[in-house]
Design a protein around this nucleic acid. Structure first.
Lengths: 333, 333
DNA sequence: TTTCAGTCTGTGAACGTTCACAGATATGTC
DNA sequence: GACATATCTGTGAACGTTCACAGACTGAAA
């Protein structure tokens, strides 16, 4: 197993100097066509691959960004949205030869690890996913000279961390408006945790349409899990047995709500209409299939990456991006 | 924004030499308690963080591992198993201060990128996920001096790439045996792609129990997607209308099968019993909830990581690990 | 012919570590 | 008391790049 060829080997084969090879590698100006060709040929011949560590050492850039999942285990486990995010971000970054490092920040120990990693300059940027309001990590971030963006607003830090997100509030309005138009009169909602944008903003959208009809009695909170949705629905039915529709802030919770309704002997959609949010894969496996709000997740991920790259490239400031949602009507309403 | 402190700064503050600091950093022998304490204090005081690039340059180790998803987009999108894998691997590796880099190898261009990355020595190990038989990447891997393991056997390369996996074959036997015991007489199956272990081995397990009763007529193939399961079920019903049970090689496909059965007016489980595989989140959202085979995915991921770490630490060879599955009975059978 | 700007190339120094070695001190054995 | 051995510490060199600089060559303008 021969040693890996270095820039010196390439230079020797091409009959030029180290510097010229480096210039070719970095697409610098001022390289003669002849030298350029010779270097390219030498690279192919020797099978040379650049040593990133060596480059990093002098440039102070790493060519990598960290995706931080600030989420307790359970959700990550259930939520299929992460996959889309991960895949899209990996792809887009790979195009720029930037690699994506995964980190999980479920507890304070994890968080410290992330902070240490970033403080050590091991990454050029951070990509926060599903970060909750008040997350210490976000506060630590402002002291670290690293580009940072979030997928979905970080509640309370909207102006600190740029983000791309679906229009949660308008999406919730679309669904609520639709339920009203279908003649539903007593519409309840099951929200997500209120320290997440999906929790807070979707509730706001719901309230936007219903105004004072959105009474406390008709609002119940879930944790984005199926079981959470099920028990929230049960509580709702007990407190307000006369509801004829419910807007659930995620498809997975909606699946749970369907079980609770079935257990209570309510027919969907005849007795109670159920609207979800996400248009994830579950929306199709439930019976009946869910009417829901589709988020352009892939585009959200793409835009988030775009913002991050802009910051890494030196942009002083970037504007948040909010993308429109679509109402998808199926049989549950 | 002051410059980041280096090992020299720490040495100066602690009143020792570079070498001693390095020894403390690497838990080397031969450091006096006094020096050790002084260095620790200096590290805390200066806020020093090790520069990995510099270390990498001299040690030829990177402290990172690549997880390669060799999968076309669609599956990744739907399969929730990835999240478990990703989370568990990230956690376990983080404990050893090894970071996990994500790469996707959906097409040949991607694959070349991965090969180049590994050939460049940018990672100490590779973690293959859901690699299909005949994947060029695997062949390229043998020429590269990098530790490699797979989650799930790579069909045809079982002896080349060590792996950890659930006992697919025995799991399929458990389910098939159970269906037989419940008195089902005409049992069909919907397999996964036969170039994946989940496709091939689960079919083998099915055939192990049924013997010659597992006729071609009763075997249909899917692609692990819900839609694929739905159309496979439809084909099966057309070809063999008298079946009274079906073993589906994944929960997601089973969800599709349920739709097809409902569309054909068959009751589940009265007319046709349906058994899934995976015990993923979908198994609970379907109606009725699915009887299925639980895979110890978390342990599979842990074991895979363990094998990888062993190889990185210099083990010459490691043995594959196969973990037992459990039958989970719900209402679909 | 001289001067100048533009193009191209090579070279030394630096980035922040680890490693091998050499030297110094302490501990034990005959 | 002499010697070997174990423990501890500092130092120079190396890892493979990039960057700033200096010098050489070209062609055009004065």
């Amino acid at each position: 197993m021969a040693k890996r060829p270095t820039i010196h080997d390439v230079a020797a084969v091409a009959g030029v100097s180290r510097g010229t090879v480096s210039r070719v590698l970095n697409d610098d100006r001022y390289v003669s066509p002849a030298a350029h060709a010779a270097v390219k040929r030498a690279i192919a011949e020797t099978g040379y691959v650049l040593n990133r560590a060596a480059r990093s050492l002098v440039t102070q850039r790493t060519g990598s960004v960290v995706m931080v999942l600030s989420e307790p285990q359970e959700r990550l486990f259930e939520d299929p949205n992460y996959s889309v995010l991960l895949r899209t971000a990996t792809r887009r970054l790979a195009e720029r030869d930037i690699s994506l490092v995964m980190m999980i920040a479920g507890n304070d120990g994890d968080r410290d690890r992330v902070v240490r990693y970033l403080r050590g300059g091991h990454a050029d940027g951070v990509f926060l996913v599903s970060t909750h309001a008040g997350d210490r990590l976000v506060d630590a971030l402002v002291d670290i000279p690293v580009a940072a963006v979030a997928q979905g607003a970080v509640i309370g830090r909207e102006n600190v961390i740029p983000y791309a997100a679906a229009d949660d509030r308008e999406g919730a309005r679309q669904m609520t408006r639709y339920l009203v138009e279908r003649g539903r009169r007593r519409i309840a909602t099951i929200t997500g945790p209120l320290d997440t944008p999906g929790g807070a903003l979707r509730l706001e959208g719901f309230a936007d349409i219903l105004g004072r009809k959105a009474s406390r009695r008709l609002i119940e909170h879930g944790d984005y899990t199926q079981l959470g949705g099920e028990s929230a629905m049960a509580r709702l039915l007990e407190r307000a047995p006369d509801i004829d529709a419910v807007f659930v802030a995620s498809d997975l919770m909606a699946a749970g709500a369907l079980s609770a309704l079935r257990a209570a002997g309510r027919r969907v959609p005849e007795d109670v209409a159920v609207g979800g949010f996400d248009d994830s894969a579950v929306a199709l496996t439930t019976h009946p299939p869910l009417t829901t709000i589709r988020q352009p997740l892939e585009r959200v991920a793409e835009e988030t990456v775009r913002l991050l790259l802009a910051l890494i490239d030196g942009a002083e400031q970037v504007e948040p991006v909010i993308l429109p949602t679509d109402l998808i009507v199926r049989e549950s309403t």
